[in-house]
Structure formats: structure tokens, C-alpha cells
Design a protein around this nucleic acid. Structure first.
Length: 600
RNA sequence: CGGGGCGUAGCGCAGUUUGGUAGCGCGCACGGUUCGGGACCGUGAGGUCGAAGGUUCAAAUCCUUUCGCCCCGACCA
């Protein structure tokens, strides 16, 4: 391609609304443009990258015996109604009506459609296993689209679905996909971690996320420095402190007047005063405070709508006790209580049930008996402080097992500094971008949709399913988050829009001719190359080349040409190499292959 | 959905407080001088000031409504 003929509008200034590197650089480099919030168009360069990412995904999916299909993006409501997700998805679903008033929506994911496809056509265990995938635009009316291609309302996804005869076989399919995903993420040149994760609304139990490490990532993950343990903080665990409270040493429980002492900091400051009660080993630090939070537990009956002005009743409130220096993991709380989600109870709800406001709530002798969940670490505190369930009062010298009871479990957010639950090694915290997510679904969808086959004994059984997603457009942006500098993008060779770019630095006929000749020779060799033949000053071409981020740059200028040489530079490297003109083509072709590219 | 911010030329912005004929930089077109890290000079094109309604002799500016976009949070197969 010749730059002079290319639709490649680069921008010198940083677009006002872009913050994250990938967003800024995709706009500035002429890759994408916004049409609406979370809706983007791909310019020629963007489309080239996208096609390269797709090609890698197709190659590995095909190699893993998955077969490509294409499902519609416009879906009749009946499919999602069949599994209840038409309501479950709520406003995220982009709904529409046809001329007859029939209800439709745009597909946010396709479990129901593929399950229907398979139940209609597959009747026997002899036709299994089956793995079908597609690459297609998905539609989710996100509450808050952000950061360019990172979180869009329309985005490209590769979604695959496996169908097996048994749970055991389903896990084999899952393992095959996991290996394929490893190959894909490596081919894309991404630094990533595979982590344990929450399955969310999709159903099923076993799942893993492929998290691309990036400071701008929305997800928080922890990974062990010694073993392969890694998890999203949503579900991360840590080695449990098994030190038991030694009641022999814990003094008698003491009611202390603590006026206006609500926050953890205030409590610690209060007990740090000279005249305040002390624990046997000194002050009551943050890690000795038993932080007690009241959660509103929604009714398990979905038909029972809670009125906006309703006041909580005792059976709707659960107490969660964690150490003052720990944070509650609400996903774990919800899971323990068997509900989809929990929210902190409002001040009014807390007062209504406990007769006291947040800040003075504690697990010891509440006004009414409440379900109480205690984090392991909090249960191990031998001599702690907690709210006394009376205004302006706390208890000192309290311990789980002696002063209060509850269900002990893992309830807190794990972070850097915690110990690995597998090996005891140190955990490190990272930010990640969820680039892929794989699930064993079991029979969650097949049962609801009566998608069954006959096994070898003639018995009718639901398919055991798995599903496997990759955010294609998101990965394109993720690659930039990981590969850029102050001047622009540094594409990995495997997904770069062009493998090499030839710059003619100067408008002298011999320079233009040499660049043209090299361009044609590289093309003939099978190198995907962009020739910057614009009548621009060298500075403009060099700046644009850095911004666009093509991995290999060959500059033809007066200086080098005098010696019969071209200047070759890697975008990811500061050094330049002078190579004789008649050796450049071979050198570039070799470099392209060495960096993981393929000649045409 | 809660909080905050912003809509003025293709892009980035000033002008709004205190109403009085809409401006700057980049980009674009033409001419000239330049030519190895986003050149310079000159000339020129380009705007219903997001939209609607209101106040006023007069509205980018004041009032009301509305639409859109961004950031933080909540949410997120």
C-alpha cells in the first residue's frame, strides 16, 4: 500500500475524550473512530489488525477441532425467554420490535441459539463431541462504555460452545480449549495470566479467565510468586491463619463508652489513648478491630419485589465480620448466602433491625438473632474490639467462640502480601483486562432447553456443555496497552497492520526511486509493506511511523543512499542498523519471520 | 443508576462571570521558500456556537427543557 493513496488519517493532538493509551493511540493512529458511546468504526488500519487477530484465533480454534459457524445477531426473544435470561439480563439487552410488534433483541452471547441449533440436529452420542464457534459482533447496552475498544456496546467476540456426553468428557473439551487459548494469547504477543474467576450470570461452576496484564485493566487479580496459583480477587483465597484464640489470656469482656467513634480509624485512635483499655500485648490495632457490616439479603423468590420504601426485617439482614484491616468480598458473601448479589444495608435498615446505627454494630448479643458470617481471620482474633450494639459503645476483649458465634468461612478480599492458598508463597497483585473466559457449563442450558441426545444405552440425556469467549476487539486494544511508548504503538509482528514500512526521506528522484524499488522488491518477497511516498518532510513521516507502530521501519535518505545503504529500525528498539541496499529485502524477510510474522 | 465535567470550524481550545456584528492554534486549498524528528511566509475556504423554547431592542453569553459525550462510582456472559 502507498501511503499517498491510503485512507490513514492520523491526528497530531490527543483527542479530548480519550484517556487510556489504547484509546488515544487507536484514534491518533487512524485505526478507529467513534460513532456513538461504545460504538466504533474500523478504519482500514484497524480492520487489518482485527483480521490478523481473527486469523490467529481461527487457526487455533480450527486446530482444536472446533468448527466455525455464524449465528444471527438479531434474535427472537423466545430463545432467551426459554432460559429466563430475557429478564435476567435486564437493560443490558438491546431490545427491538419488528413491524408486527414481535419482540427481538440483539445477541449479547449465544448459548441459547447454539443449544437450539444442536438440539434440532444432534440426536445421538455418536455425533458427539462437538465444538462450534463463531466470530461476530455482540451487543450489550453497557451501563458505562469506556476506554475506546475496552468496553463497548458493540464489540467483536469469538464464542465457542462444546457439547459432550458426560461431565468428564466436557472437562476434556474444556482442557482442549484452555490449551488453544494459551496458544492464541501467546501468538498475540500478550503478557497474560490464566486465573480462577467467578462464573457470573452465565451459569456453571468451573471457569477461568485469561487476564492480560495492564495497569489500565479494570480487573484486579492476584498471582503467586512461587507456584501457578492466580485468581481474580473476586474469588481469590489466601492461606488461612489457623492460630486459635487463647481464651485463657483474653480478659473479661468490657463495655466501653466510645462517643462518636464510628470508623475503624476512630476506634483505633480511641483505644490508642493512654486511659483506654489495652490488650495484653498493647494497643488494639486495626487488625484487632472486628469490623461488622450489615448486608441486605434479597429474597430468593424473584417474584417478591421489594418496595422502595420497605424497611428491613431481621430475616433480610446478615452480619459479616472481618478484621478492620480487611475488606469484605461481596461475591463470597452472596455465594455463602445462596443469592446472586448482596448490598450493604442502608442506615435506616440497620437502625430498624438492630436499634443502633452503623459504626456501633457488633456480633456480640445483637438485639435480635441474625445470621452471622465470620471471616477466618476475624475468628482468629483472640482479643478484639467490636461494636456493642448500643449507641456510642464498643466492647473490648472479645473473641470468636467465647463472646459470639457465627459461620466461619473465607469472606475477605485477598491482596498483595497475603499468602498463597496452595503453596504459602507470596501473592502479588496485578491489574488485568479480561481477554478470554472459559466455562464448564454442565447442563445448565441443555436441561432448561430440553436439549438431549440418546446415549449408548438408549437413555435420553442433556448435553454437557462448555462455552469459551474471547473479546477480539478488546484484545486488539489490550495489545496496545502492553505495547506502546510515548511516541505511539509498538505492534507485535503477529498482529501489526503491516509488517514493514518504507520511508522515503526526501523528494530527490534517486531517493524516491530507491524507495519505490525497495517497496516493490519487498512486496515481491511476500512482505506486507506500507510505502510512505507522501511529499512530506522527514519529520512528519518519522513521527507518523512511530505513531502507527509498524514493527519494521526502513528509511531511505540521502545520507544512507550515498553509501548505498538503507536504515533499518525496529519500532520496539532504539538502535538503527545500516544495511546495504541489495541485502535489505533478504534481511527484512528474515526479520519478519524471526519476529513471528509470515510471508505472503 | 448516583456524583462530577464538557458540547463554539475537521481536531484542540478561548470567548459565557458583566448580553452588543464569533476568535486563536493545528489541519485543509493556492503561491513561494524549505527538506533527517510534526518547517516558514503570504493568500483563502470553512461555524444555524449540540437542539428546542423563553427573556430582551439585542443571546454563544441569562432562564427552562432536552439530546449527546467523557471521567469517578455502582454494574459488568
Amino acid at each position: 500500500m502507498r501511503y499517498s493513496q491510503a485512507f490513514l488519517p492520523t491526528i497530531k493532538e490527543v483527542p479530548k475524550d480519550a484517556v487510556d493509551a489504547s484509546h488515544v493511540l487507536l484514534l491518533r493512529g487512524g485505526y478507529i473512530r467513534m460513532v456513538g458511546a461504545g460504538i466504533y468504526e474500523m478504519l482500514p488500519l484497524g480492520q487489518r489488525v482485527l483480521k490478523r487477530v481473527q486469523a490467529i484465533i481461527r487457526r487455533e480454534m480450527d486446530a482444536a477441532n472446533a468448527q466455525e459457524v455464524l449465528m444471527p445477531a438479531i434474535l427472537p426473544a423466545t430463545y432467551f425467554q426459554e432460559t429466563g435470561r430475557y429478564d435476567l439480563y435486564g437493560p443490558v439487552l438491546l431490545r427491538l420490535k419488528d413491524r408486527k410488534g414481535g419482540e427481538y433483541h440483539l445477541g449479547p452471547t449465544h448459548e441459547e441459539i447454539i443449544t437450539d441449533m444442536v438440539r434440532r440436529e444432534v440426536k445421538s452420542y455418536r455425533q458427539l463431541p462437538l465444538n462450534l464457534y463463531q466470530i461476530q459482533m455482540k451487543y450489550r447496552d453497557e451501563a458505562r462504555p469506556r476506554a475506546g475498544l475496552m468496553r463497548c456496546r458493540e464489540f467483536m467476540m469469538k464464542d465457542a460452545y462444546s457439547f459432550d456426553v458426560s461431565e468428564e468428557k466436557a472437562f476434556e473439551s474444556y482442557a482442549t480449549m484452555r490449551e488453544a487459548y494459551h496458544r492464541i494469547f501467546k501468538s498475540l504477543g500478550l503478557d497474560y495470566r490464566i486465573v480462577e474467576a467467578d462464573s457470573g450470570q452465565i451459569g456453571g461452576k468451573t471457569s477461568a479467565e485469561f487476564q492480560v496484564l495492564a495497569q489500565s485493566g479494570e480487573d484486579r487479580i492476584v498471582a503467586c510468586t512461587k507456584c501457578d496459583y492466580a485468581a481474580n480477587v473476586e474469588v481469590a483465597e489466601a492461606r488461612i491463619d489457623t492460630t486459635k484464640a487463647d481464651f485463657g489470656k483474653t480478659p473479661e469482656r468490657l463495655l466501653v463508652k466510645t462517643p462518636k467513634t464510628k470508623s475503624i480509624e476512630q476506634v483505633v485512635a480511641f483505644f490508642a489513648k493512654d486511659d483506654a483499655p489495652k490488650s495484653a500485648d498493647g494497643a488494639f490495632g486495626t487488625n484487632r478491630i472486628l469490623k461488622t457490616l450489615a448486608y441486605l439479603v434479597p429474597s430468593k423468590d424473584p417474584k417478591k419485589e421489594r418496595a422502595a420504601d420497605a424497611v428491613a426485617t431481621p430475616d433480610e439482614i446478615a452480619l459479616v465480620v472481618v478484621r478492620g484491616d480487611h475488606e469484605v468480598n461481596e461475591i463470597l458473601v452472596a455465594r455463602a448466602l445462596g443469592v446472586d448479589e448482596v448490598h450493604l444495608a442502608s442506615e435506616n435498615d440497620v437502625k430498624a433491625v438492630l436499634g443502633v446505627g452503623p459504626g456501633f454494630v457488633g456480633p456480640v448479643a445483637p438485639k435480635v438473632a441474625l445470621r452471622t458470617l465470620v471471616d477466618h481471620a476475624a475468628a482468629a482474633v483472640a482479643d478484639g474490639v467490636c461494636g456493642a450494639n448500643q449507641w456510642d459503645h464498643h466492647f473490648a476483649h472479645v473473641a470468636y467462640g467465647r463472646d459470639f458465634e457465627g459461620e466461619v468461612m473465607h469472606l475477605r478480599l485477598v491482596g498483595a502480601g497475603d499468602e498463597c492458598p496452595k503453596c504459602g508463597g507470596g501473592l502479588e497483585a496485578y491489574r488485568g483486562i479480561e481477554g478470554g473466559h472459559i466455562f464448564v457449563l454442565g447442563t445448565h442450558y441443555s436441561s432448561k432447553m430440553k436439549a438431549t441426545f440418546l446415549d449408548e444405552t438408549g437413555e435420553s440425556k442433556p448435553f454437557v456443555m462448555g462455552c469459551y469467549g474471547i473479546g477480539v476487539t478488546r484484545l486488539m486494544a489490550s495489545a496496545i496497552e502492553q505495547h506502546h511508548d510515548a511516541d505511539g504503538i509498538r505492534w507485535p509482528m503477529s498482529i501489526a497492520p503491516y509488517q514493514a514500512t518504507v520511508l522515503s526521506l526526501g523528494n530527490e528522484p534517486e531517493i524516491v526511486e530507491a524507495a519505490e524499488k525497495l517497496y516493490e522488491a519487498l512486496k515481491a518477497k511476500g512482505v506486507d509493506v506500507l510505502l510512505d511516498d507522501r511529499h512530506e518532510r522527514p519529520g512528519v513521516k518519522l513521527k507518523d511511523a512511530d505513531l502507527v507502530g509498524i514493527p519494521l521501519r526502513i528509511a531511505i535518505g540521502k545520507r544512507g543512499l550515498a553509501e548505498g545503504k538503507a536504515e533499518v529500525k525496529l519500532r520496539s528498539d532504539a538502535d538503527v542498523t545500516m544495511i546495504a541496499m541489495d541485502e535489505v529485502v533478504e534481511a527484512i524477510a528474515t526479520k519478519v519471520v524471526a519476529l513471528g510474522g509470515k510471508l505472503l
